[in-house]
């Protein structure tokens, strides 16, 4: 698709889509930082995660984008929402739902320093230009072949880790 986009002088559409999704990403994250309600903050995180899936699509990684929505939005975020609702009960619900900030200015300053440092360093680095994702290659098939041949050890380790986490989390959370 990108081929004809470039050929027909429509490349700016990609930039508009990229700008839209990066605005959503940063806006959701900033809302999470400035929100006074933890549940609304979780919705900011939702906006951010879905926009990041859009950024993955712009970068030509459709399988990662779908996994991002399935794992992060469908799994982790729902888990976090359940955590919020389960910890906001009884007489201490104000304590669990309220958001208390410490060192607001100092931490924003440190964060700005981190971001500025990374961006400055990134501008100084030299790397080969992105080649553009070849649409002829089937990305999902490529990923599956890698997982089953060269990266099979990592796949097995991820499976064992998930089993350990399943057992450990249910053991910790039991009454």
């Amino acid at each position: 698709m990108e081929e004809w986009l470039n050929a027909a002088q429509w490349a700016w559409v990609t930039y508009v889509v990229f700008g839209f999704f990066s605005l959503g990403t940063l806006g959701g994250a900033l809302y999470l930082f400035f929100s006074k309600n933890i549940l609304y903050g979780a919705y900011g995180l939702l906006t951010s995660l879905i926009s990041i899936a859009g950024l993955f699509l712009v970068a030509g990684a459709e399988f990662i984008a779908v996994s991002q929505i399935m794992i992060y939005v469908g799994g982790i975020l729902i888990l976090i929402l359940f955590g919020i609702m389960l910890s906001a009960k009884g007489k201490d619900r104000r304590d669990a739902l309220g958001v208390k900030n410490v060192n607001n200015l100092a931490s924003l300053l440190v964060a700005a320093l981190v971001a500025g440092g990374i961006i400055l360093y990134g501008f100084r680095l030299q790397w080969p230009a992105a080649k553009g994702v070849d649409q002829e290659i089937n990305q999902v098939r490529n990923l599956g072949m890698s997982l089953m041949t060269t990266e099979v050890l990592m796949l097995e380790m991820a499976g064992v880790l998930l089993l350990l986490v399943l057992i450990g989390a249910s053991y910790i959370a039991k009454k």
Binding site: F33, A59, G83, I84, N101, N103, V110, W127, A129
Partner: peptide, 29 residues
């Protein structure tokens, strides 16, 4: 084709915001 630098800027800003959230908030979640 979006240059890598744009992605780098977005991810640097997102990392900084996440870092600020992690060290500012007094709430484990």
């Amino acid at each position: 084709m979006i240059p890598n630098t744009y992605f780098l800027i977005i991810s640097a800003l997102l990392f900084a915001i996440g870092f600020a959230v992690a060290i500012t908030k007094k709430n484990l979640i």
